[in-house]
Amino acid sequence: MSLISSTSPHTTGKTDTGAFMRQVLYATLPGLAVLTWQFGWGSVINVLWAVLVALLSEAAILKARGRPLGFYLKDYSAVVTAVLLGLALPPTAPWWLTLIGVSFAIIVAKQLYGGLGMNPFNPAMVGYVLLLISFPAAMTRWIAPGQTPEPAQSWQLFLGQAGVDGFSGATPLDTFRTWAGNASELSGHAILHGQFAGLGWEWVNLAFLLGGLYLLARRIITWQIPAAFLLGVAVPALIASLVDPVRFAGPLFHLFSGGTMLGAFFIATDPVTAATSRLGRFIYALLIGVLIWVIRSFGGYPDAVAFSVLLLNLCAPFIDYYTQPRTYGHRKANRGVGS
């Protein structure tokens, strides 16, 4: 009789990392659907192409590192990175843009640091920032609302065979940044006046919020990061807009424009690169939110999720050292790095 010999516990929950990642993927579907509804098939094409590039990059580097392919590809982490980057890229992005961003994210930002769990920076955001700095024009050409391209046109955009002039336009964040302080211009731009936020983008963000709530309900993420993130954006926006509504956009506009909801529920919640304790995560995400509002209001870029997340990734280990929870039986929590 050969008996299994192992240490306790002898039973484990049914979850696994792959299942975690798949839940994240499912939760992006509403957002992807609304993006497609608003901006055409470009996002779907981006996402699919990004997934293919990510899997190939991951496989290649795993092979080079002598790791088992199937075991690691099954954790879906590369797919999640690819999908999030694909969603963040403009629907007009040509194939090479996605190829560069995704392969850099997987190979450099993730695998060269040791693969899943070892990377200090969010790989999707590293890829995004690389592209934003290297190809600023291509990265800021979004489809104007109401100019949704046909699927064939999206495909041609992807192949780089069609000009984007017929479709592209400024995003609400871009428009507000351009005309901030000019009351008449601000009121004259229809894109700034949707149902409750920027035209088109309000629905995109609402869809990502829905997906995020699904993740919360499935306990894939905890409330601290999204809540603090949104608070960090909304509170300064509220105060500033009360002080000077012409110079500063309101909280709703900020919350439902650009990458706010995607960032709050899908990007900042990446556990590998976030702080780890409950309090630490709250502080971490709050600072991301504040930083986003600061860069949007005063910086050179219309949106700032990627920069803010990367900057706070830097701080996460430090935050962890000072936010240990109070352990059972201890009067105070330990602080600092220990001896």
Partner: peptide, 13 residues
């Protein structure tokens, strides 16, 4: 048998 160990993703569960 316990499944093979995967990398920790610091999910916090």
């Amino acid at each position: 048998e316990p499944p093979p160990e995967q990398p920790c993703i610091r999910c916090g569960s």
